[in-house]
Design a protein around this nucleic acid. Structure first.
Lengths: 247, 247
DNA sequence: AAGAGTTTTTCTGTATTATGAATTTTGCCG
DNA sequence: CGGCAAAATTCATAATACAGAAAAACTCTT
């Protein structure tokens, strides 16, 4: 394979680093952060400066991004034909449940978080858009398996290594298959410490243009259990409404 | 020179393209947008997918960014030690003047827009963060020249090609030097169709940690002239307040 | 003001990546 | 359900960007 990982995504990794440290950086600091030689970083920084993405303080000689990237990212987010319709409903769901709400979909042999709206509590399920989760142990992953066509599902059940991510992970195809069937019938999927111990997650599907999306509410087991019925209710009605918006 | 332009900034150019077209794209469409071979785009898209930046619709086979980039850009913007203090004042200035307000600084031998807050009017000065403007013909550029140390200023006056960007551009060092002196004395810099005809811009300096920043109010000449005194007033008080926030 | 240390910039061989053609897969229509 | 067209993926090679070292610029201290 010929993945242009190192080079072509280095600019993105630079922005990641800026988000992580949250402060202007000198060239040598950037070199450290990216674990990349100074000369390489020099070229990259200069290129991004020319593109108007980075500016340097003439006094401190440190670099920081302009608002250009933000502007582009906002434009992209505003134009997404699917995600933008979820926004309001996800925010509402977060407000009523007071737990983290996540939108995700199937990507190759994993689930990718397309958007995350975090709980207001300081103890909360915390995640970022772009995070990937395994199919067999996460609520979203099980949703994707359960809602896929039988052929696809059985293919995954045959080939996926059902690693025991935690003690509660379902690690045999038969047990997992049964769980998927039950979940499908009742309309939502659930994990109880199967991917992250202490986390209970509930996921319901939304179909748009033939594509399967999943909305998850996730939080610490204790707090989630105490309001499980309400969450179940809020989640399923939210998903119905979202589907309705596209009807 | 060894600028890693083509390769290392290709991921950023891809996001630019997504912002421009505002819709999911197939691999071949991406190839067209970036004027880059399919195989190259394939590697790039795969790398960005692995990083959680892009997701593909399994039905339409089109790609679109997740909210990951937005999340990173927002984190970066929130942490900027300088720009975030300007935000409120720039928004207020935009509201009182009803014209586009821009923050910029000196970058090499040009001025770069760090942030742009646009006028509510449909006829307005429109620009994006990251845009570059010449030093001799833009209000911000003249501000940078006028506020720099004499040595720096004279260096620029000697070496800059004072191109006639419009008919009103000041194209001789002597005329420009006089304009800078007058502007410096009265506390703000001004262009009247010197960089873009029909545009009147007024810029006032803000000094932070030895670094010179400039705040500009720009709009169509007619509208700007009719409220020039108010704008002058609002601009200078805003800049004073911003400086105060750092005092 | 002058020197020592630090940081930035330049330079060139080498290794990695981009490329275009061939292959495979996928979607579509009869 | 099978054949065709279009798109995605792989592969070998040519081209380009990367990395390390050396030079230059800048800072800070004396």
């Amino acid at each position: 394979m010929n993945f242009a990982d190192a080079s072509s995504t280095r600019s993105v990794r630079l922005f990641e680093a800026f988000a992580a440290v949250g402060a202007p950086q000198s060239l040598s600091e950037i070199s450290n952060l990216l674990a990349t030689p100074l000369s390489t970083c020099h070229g990259l920084v200069k290129a991004l400066q020319n593109g108007g993405y980075l500016y340097s303080n003439n006094v401190s000689r440190r670099h920081y991004p302009t608002r250009r990237l933000l502007q582009i990212a906002e434009t992209i987010a505003a134009n997404d034909p699917v995600l933008k319709y979820f926004d309001a409903h996800m925010a509402e769901l977060r407000d009523t449940t007071e737990e983290t709400v996540i939108l995700g979909t199937l990507q190759k042999d994993a689930v990718v978080y397309l958007n995350v709206v975090e709980s207001p509590h300081s103890i909360r399920y915390s995640a970022r858009p772009g995070d990937m989760k395994p199919l067999h142990s996460s609520a979203l992953g099980k949703l994707m398996l359960g809602e896929s066509e039988k052929k696809v599902r059985e293919g995954f059940l045959k080939t996926l290594p059902l690693d025991a991510v935690t003690q509660n992970t379902l690690t045999t195809p038969d047990v997992l298959r049964r769980d998927l069937e039950q979940s499908r019938d009742r309309g939502f999927y659930m994990t109880r410490g199967e991917n992250v111990s202490e986390v209970l997650a509930m996921a319901a599907p939304v179909r748009i243009g033939g594509e399967i999306y999943g909305v998850v509410v996730a939080g610490p087991i204790g707090r989630m259990e105490s309001k499980q019925a309400e969450i179940e209710d809020a989640l399923t009605t939210a998903c119905t409404r979202i589907s309705g918006d596209f009807g």
